[in-house]
């Protein structure tokens, strides 16, 4: 297992100063992001933060209005074959041709990818318990997601792009999806780029996380760094106040009276000292889940 996302490895996705407007609404605002080869990159953000818009740019379904998008150092709009042939993608609404049967879908998709792995495809078909004769239209949500995943995985893509892969699915299917993400990157050199708002999943599988908010990247760091740098510190002050005393480095805080709980980012020692300097004592200190970090970042 190599170090994933090390800065020296080749960038697989490079987004530079990307802005996208829909009428007067700004969906992406001068966004820049680089994804390096290898590992799992989790993109998290609230509804309407711009996750899907960014992903659609990476796949060439949106043309950059300003800024640039490069995938495998190619322009996905100018060279769809070069880019899309190396990508496996499952859209948020699992768009598939409804009129096909599952085995037709497999055969049809096979024609597009020279390195299609038939053995792997039938292995997945068994593992996912898909009925080859079933019509795609008649599949349940979960089976539909599995069918879409099969076609996205069977050519062993260099980059797997999943837009909200777990939304609206039961835990069993979610496990299948996460399992296939893990299997994909266990093959060396492959990359998974996925967006989600189920943050415990992201915490489990992502090496690196970017928070997108109002069309901009707010935070982009390794999962370990994020977990290390964010702590929750509870101070007890001498006097009760109606508003939390300001401490430098605060992301968000809540509490009442004498006890106030802060979420701090980064320099923990400095933060503690700053609190103690205004006469407060640390009563509690704890690590945060990704969920809590996200809420603190976005609402703070």
């Amino acid at each position: 297992m190599t170090d994933s996302f090390s800065e020296s490895s080749t960038p697989i996705v490079e987004v530079q100063g990307l802005t996208r407007r829909f009428d007067d609404k700004v969906a992406l605002n001068d966004l820049s992001l680089t994804v390096h080869r290898g590992g799992v990159f989790g993109l998290i953000g609230g509804n309407g933060a711009g996750k899907t818009t960014l992903i659609r740019h990476i796949l060439g379904m949106f043309k950059a209005q300003s800024g640039s998008v490069k995938v495998f150092s190619l322009d996905p709009v100018k060279d769809p074959v070069g880019v899309l042939g190396r990508i496996g993608y499952l859209s948020e609404d699992r768009d598939l041709p409804d009129w096909m049967r599952v085995h037709q879908l497999v055969r049809y998709s096979q024609a597009f990818y020279p390195n299609w792995d038939s053995a792997y495809a039938s292995e997945l078909m068994d593992a996912f318990d898909l009925d080859p004769k079933a019509k795609v239209k008649s599949l349940s949500r979960g089976q539909r997601a599995r069918a879409g995943l099969l076609v996205a995985l069977a050519h062993r893509p260099e980059l797997l792009v999943l837009d909200e892969p777990s939304s609206g699915l039961d835990p069993v299917v979610r496990r299948d999806i996460l399992g296939s993400i893990i299997r994909t990157i266990a093959d060396d050199g492959r990359t998974v780029f996925f967006s989600s708002h189920l943050l415990d999943e992201v915490e489990r599988v992502a090496d690196r996380v970017a928070i997108i908010h109002h069309g901009q990247i707010m935070l982009n760091a390794g999962m370990d760094d994020i977990k290390q740098s964010h702590r929750r510190v509870t101070f007890r002050f001498n006097e009760s106040t109606s508003e939390a005393p300001a401490i430098h480095g605060t992301l968000s805080c809540e509490g009442s009276g004498q006890e106030w709980t802060y979420v701090c980012d980064g320099q923990l020692d400095q933060f503690r000292n700053a609190g103690q300097a205004i006469g407060a004592a640390v009563v509690d200190e704890a690590a945060l889940t990704l969920d809590e970090i996200f809420v603190a970042r976005v609402s703070g």
Binding site: M1, D3, G39, L178, I182, A186, R204, A206, D207
Partner: peptide
């Protein structure tokens, strides 16, 4: 093996490796 444990726990293999 790292990969096996990662798949059973549904956790990134790099995490297990670490």
């Amino acid at each position: 093996a790292i990969r096996t444990l990662a798949e059973t726990l549904i956790v990134n293999p790099n995490t297990i490796a670490r």
